[in-house]
């Protein structure tokens, strides 16, 4: 950072793990998932893992636990679980 507080590179939010803010985490039941990727489209933190067009899970380093993916999922495949519970 410069004296004028300009960050001299882009994309530094990647280093800031907002996942630590979470009190509840989304968990996916892949038996119900149809890979529509609505969760991926709506996630504000780019935390839905997708490979080869398939939803592969959630990247918890940046997921704040907002629950938008749960609301958007048409198959109720994602549920919120209290952190600290299995």
């Amino acid at each position: 950072m410069t004296a004028e507080d300009v960050i001299m590179k882009p994309g530094t939010a990647r280093q800031y793990h907002t996942g630590s803010w979470r009190s509840r985490r989304p968990e996916v039941d892949k038996d119900k998932c149809i890979n529509c990727l609505f969760c991926w489209m709506f996630c504000p933190d780019n935390s839905i893992l997708v490979e080869g067009g398939e939803m592969k899970g959630i990247r918890y380093t940046h997921c704040k636990g907002c629950g938008i993916c749960v609301r958007q999922c048409p198959k109720d495949a994602i549920t919120m679980v209290e952190e600290g519970e299995q």
Partner: peptide, 12 residues
């Protein structure tokens, strides 16, 4: 000093 349109040296 740090023009935002200096796209070769992006910063925030």
């Amino acid at each position: 000093l740090h023009p935002l349109l200096d796209v070769k040296n992006p910063h925030s």
